[in-house]
Design a protein around this nucleic acid. Structure first.
Length: 659
RNA sequence: GCCGAGGUAGCCUAGCUGGUUGGGGCGUCGGACUCAUAAUCCGAAGGUCCCGGGUUCGAAUCCCGGCCUCGGCACCA
């Protein structure tokens, strides 16, 4: 029995195209494996714990469970509608996962891989509780920006250790927090370094993008993981008033979901998870969680005495209309609101995702490309071939009994081999290109055989041609089924065979005789108006996002007057060591020379900004960036996140006021 | 900065253990056909294989240097 899993969607937001980038190929993979005769268990579930869920639930005034329920339902619905069929879709807050997680944590403790340590944590005296991660807000000790407890998300982006944040405040009640010591538990990840190096170099299979990242990480410094948090919501850490960190109980979902799936099917989950060193387990994940799956997870499994995964397959990133996927900036396609509600066939999106490029590379989603792929590839090549054959055969004969051309059988066999080879390398584009090649072959065969002429001259010969074509149609239905299950199962039913129990080899078995009904048009065209509408929706969203980003209300001139903006002359400039973006400048602002740190080093070289006149916000609070004090802020235009400097249109004296 | 991945015609790509004219798809142009959702088929145009140097009889393919793009740099879900 082979196990295939997908990274668990976090039950904190709706499904978008980024999710599908992992789930669709995984589903396609499983369906092909089954067509290849393999026994596969396919599982997934909702990731239900963690601080963001608790914080968001509190914000909405509902319980974490209510929030999780909502998105758990949502994801199940999306998967159902897109034909992503898990054998079991669980949730990490279920009893079975709590039980398995606690069992594994106990094993880790028994085996000596967990130790306690006192650390200083932010504590809110008013709420009377410790404040984990995102419950804290304060000042970043490095750059002075407002930061979260665990990360300076708006400023320098640094990770913050517990206790590092300055002036911590409780995010719930807003009152001042203090630091208090508390005992927490750490997982001895460092003890697994040698094991991990060997595992990643010699044992784990998968896509290069995942393996290379992981190898690089494991060779640099590993640190022990703090695996406990001060929350109510989560899996209780044995014997303490703490819960385990989400990244402990989330992957354990893979195990507990397997148990549940096996229980329902009368199988033994231990054959997968407790059968020795490496087990036939394949994890499909996004690139963002490679670390957890290739480092943390195998170490945990090893430490608790469980089997290790055989392969980790990581999908590439998603872009939307050529821009980096971003929910906040509006470059996103929501599966339900944007796609399904518009009434598009889910098979189209599945085909797009699988066929756009290889699994490891970046996938760009564009509505125009979508329209072209659907209309030119799915419909014109594949759908049209199927329909023209079925329609012609039904109209002229009704029943087809003829000899299939051996050339056709050879071609089908060739395509089948291509598909098998591609699937074994997780090359889903190659597999889908292969069946499209067969459709093109079919069109060529039909065209060059001219059955519309033959029917007038030689009905038997015409019948043979159609027998060959129907053979190709059947092969196409089987070969394309994993990518487009909805439409292909309808066609299989039309042709009178059971796709659920089909094998790739069935495509080669000649159809002796077949009775045809009136065929249906398998795919509906996507029209330009609809695409324009979709693009409008997206542009509108991007525009709104930009507006929200700038988030500007109307202000009084008095407020503007608070800003002291002057022209400064850059006297000196140098890069800041260790930083990609920052440049240290000495700027003459008229009555003094200030040291200012500016994020322009990605675009400008020091020598080209020296001597330039630029606007400077003089009365901004001083801040430290990368340890260098900055007293002022260079103003520049923001073009796609990159700075463009502004210069006065004629020479003006440094210190000139801007108003 | 460090570490990955990658730069092949308007777009997506194959080739990358070096060897005849760098394949394929979409788009474009011309033609043919009419069974079919103006679908299909045939043909054509289109490439400094990022740049520079090197190794070699010979490099998109190997080596060195540079430029550019994307991503990661961790207890962030």
């Amino acid at each position: 029995m082979k196990l295939v899993t997908c990274g668990l969607p976090y039950a904190n937001g709706k499904a978008h195209i980024g999710h599908l980038r992992t789930y669709v190929p995984a589903d396609v993979y499983v369906r092909y494996l089954r067509l290849m005769g393999q026994d596969v268990l396919f599982i997934c579930g909702s990731d239900c714990h963690g601080t963001p869920i608790v914080v968001n639930a509190e914000k909405e005034g509902i319980s974490p469970k209510e929030l999780v329920d909502r998105y758990h339902e949502h994801f199940q619905k999306i998967f159902r509608e897109l034909g992503i069929e898990f054998d079991f879709y669980g949730r990490t807050d279920a009893e079975y996962n709590h039980r398995r997680t606690q069992e594994i944590v106990k094993r880790l403790i028994e085996n000596g891989y967990v130790y306690a340590k006192e650390i200083e944590l932010a504590y809110c005296p008013k709420c009377d509780r410790f404040l984990p991660d995102r419950y804290v807000e304060g000042i970043c000790p490095y750059c002075g920006a407002i930061a979260r407890g665990d990360e300076c998300d708006q400023g320098c982006g640094r990770h913050l250790e517990p206790g590092e944040i300055k002036e911590p405040r409780c995010k719930i009640c807003g009152s001042k927090a203090e630091f208090r010591k508390q005992k927490h538990y750490f997982f001895k990840l460092t003890a697994f370094k040698d094991f991990l190096i060997d595992y990643l170099e010699n044992k784990l299979q998968g896509t290069e993008n995942a393996l290379n990242y992981a190898r690089q990480w494991v060779k640099s410094e590993l640190r022990d993981w703090c695996i406990t948090r001060n929350l109510e919501w989560g899996v209780k850490f044995p014997g303490e008033d703490l819960v385990v960190y989400v990244w402990v109980d989330a992957p354990i979902g893979y195990i507990s979901f397997t148990e549940e799936a096996c229980k329902r099917k009368g199988l033994d989950w231990k054959e997968i998870w407790l059968n020795g060193e490496i087990s036939d387990i394949t994890h499909f994940i996004g690139l963002d969680i490679v670390y957890h799956h290739c480092i943390f997870w195998p170490a945990m499994l090893k430490g608790a005495g469980y089997s290790l995964p055989k392969a980790v397959v990581a999908s590439g990133m998603v872009k939307v209309e050529g821009k980096t996927f971003s929910k906040t900036r509006g470059y996103v396609v929501w599966v339900e609101d944007d796609y399904l509600k518009a009434g598009f066939n889910p098979d189209y999106l599945r085909y797009y995702i699988v066929n756009y490029t290889s699994h490891e590379k970046d996938l760009n989603f564009s509505w125009k490309v979508f329209r072209d792929k659907v209309n030119n590839e799915i419909i014109a090549t594949l759908g049209n071939f199927i329909y023209r054959v079925l329609h012609f055969a039904w109209k002229n004969f009704g029943r087809i009994e003829g000899k299939v051309d051996p050339v056709v059988i050879d071609k089908i066999a060739e395509i089948k081999d291509k598909i098998v080879s591609a699937i074994n390398r997780w090359e889903f584009k190659e597999a889908s290109d292969a069946f499209m090649e067969l459709a093109t072959f079919g069109n060529e065969f039909f065209q060059s055989s001219k059955p519309w002429d033959l029917i007038k001259e030689d009905r038997d010969k015409c019948m043979d041609v159609l027998a060959s074509c129907i053979q190709i149609v059947k092969a196409l239905v089987i070969f394309a089924y994993p990518v487009m299950p909805k439409t292909m199962s309808k066609l299989a039913e039309f042709l009178g065979f059971d796709i659920a129990n089909a094998r790739l080899e069935d495509a080669l078995k000649p159809i002796e005789s077949i009775e045809l009904k009136k065929p249906f048009i398998p795919f509906e065209k996507v029209d330009d108006k609809k695409i324009e509408e979709m693009e409008r929706v997206m542009l509108e969203r991007i525009r709104r996002a930009e507006e929200a980003e700038s988030g500007k209300e109307l202000i009084d001139i008095k407020e503007f007057e608070k800003l002291d903006i002057r022209i400064g002359k850059i006297l000196k400039a140098e890069r800041i060591k260790g930083s990609k973006k920052l440049m240290r400048l000495e700027v003459d602002i008229g009555n003094e020379v200030r040291q200012i740190v500016a994020g322009i080093a990605e675009v400008y070289k020091p020598e080209e900004v020296v001597g330039k006149l630029v606007p400077v916000l003089v009365n901004i609070k001083p801040a430290k960036l990368m340890g260098v004090e900055s007293r002022g802020m260079i103003l520049a235009a923001d073009v796609n996140g990159k700075p463009v400097l502004l210069h006065p249109d004629r020479e003006v004296p440094p210190g000139s006021k801007i108003r």
